[in-house]
Write a protein that binds this DNA or RNA. Structure first.
Lengths: 210, 210
DNA sequence: CAATTTTTGTACCGAGCGGTACTGATCCGA
DNA sequence: TCGGATCAGTACCGCTCGGTACAAAAATTG
């Protein structure tokens, strides 16, 4: 039984994409239902029927964002050495927050850093998902210690935190309109700092003064 | 002529302080007039008469924040060497975003990273003021180059950007509830990265593996 | 061709938004 | 003691918010 009533007049996935851009640019609270429906090209009842409401729509948007705009993180984790993991993460993050075909910055931060009291769970949800990413990186770096890729006295949790902090700073900077090349410079400094602080083996080229 | 009519029944400065906490915790858009007046202990017309409206109140709050909660930046700039400037900045920033008597994070970021279209100037204003701070740091580091405190080939602009990025990342992390000591670890890693990338003279103790 | 099912668009809901008119209360100087 | 000036508090403004009731429209099923 493929479909039983009137068929949907819009592509659910494509409309989700449009909603993502609105939330990304305006944040959760700053995106009104009118903004969303206009960008998605549908009416309010359709939105409610298809996604369940504003908050549910936002959570679906975040899931889509994690699956598609944060895919670089999974690639980074798959790198063979801790240095390459972090290098990939930092460099790809810069590209991700400065993509010309996307709003500047990162949905997780633009979405809602601070919220009105009734929407506080939104900010908490976003913060929790960022910290989950940090934990995943810490696990990856811990594996690097196990494998002898990082010195035994390296602190994977602290190092992962540093990397994520730089990532978040990049997102804020990008949202302020700072250019990609400028952030790339900063990412290299951070990478050098990671290498120095962790004792990670650096492939070949020297750190060099900036 | 000290005062000509009925005297004000509240302390303008103290009420501004209360308003700051509300904006800091809930952001510009997330802070409603009711939230503000309740926290300030005044009525809406009083707020309007004393401050001029919500946006003007917010700008006054930001000015107060810059003068009082960002005072550590001026202290940092006054340090004799680039290393100490950055060390002070990073360490004091961690303290500032994790003060137990204040909301977590930084008003400039919590205030509004993303806003609805009519409030977009707010986000722009906050971003611009952060970038102004970055420029000031770059100037200070350029002076360090002139003074021979930093190598001639050091890039003050890039280094300042890196430091501010870490600062902003700390603010995001703090707002997510991360503890002060955890951020302090990250600040030391960043400081080591700054030293390595800039070629700054480090006072005495070694960088050390984290 | 109904009958049924689902989506669509309009029009509306109560609530809260930022902002303000207006009445009383409270101070000053004359 | 009174007039002018300023502030406090209530009650309200138009508007937008997120969410929904309802009927017309469009598809499948018999």
């Amino acid at each position: 039984m493929p479909q039983r009533g009137r068929p949907r007049g819009f592509d659910v996935d494509e409309a989700l994409e449009r909603a993502m851009e609105v939330f990304w640019r305006q944040g959760y609270e700053g995106a009104s239902m009118s903004d969303l429906t206009e960008a998605m090209g549908i009416n309010k009842p359709s939105l409610y029927a298809a996604y369940g409401g504003k908050e549910e729509l936002f959570r679906k948007v975040v899931a889509r964002y994690a699956a598609q705009d944060m895919a670089y993180a999974r690639d980074a984790f798959a790198q063979p050495t801790a240095y390459e993991v972090v290098a990939t993460l930092l460099r790809e993050n810069v590209l991700a927050v400065t993509r010309p075909d996307r709003p500047a910055g990162c949905l997780s931060i633009q979405g809602g850093t601070a919220c009105a009291t009734p929407n506080a769970p939104i900010a908490g949800f976003l913060a929790a998902s960022r910290l989950a990413g940090e934990r995943a990186l810490a696990d990856r770096l811990a594996r690097a210690v196990d494998e002898g890729d990082l010195p035994a006295d390296a602190d994977p949790v602290a190092l992962a935190r540093f990397v994520m902090i730089v990532t978040e700073g990049h997102a804020i900077h990008a949202a302020a309109g700072v250019a990609r090349e400028d952030l790339q410079q900063a990412a290299e400094i951070a990478l050098a700092g990671f290498a120095a602080a962790s004792g990670a083996r650096v492939p070949e080229q020297a750190t060099g003064t900036v």
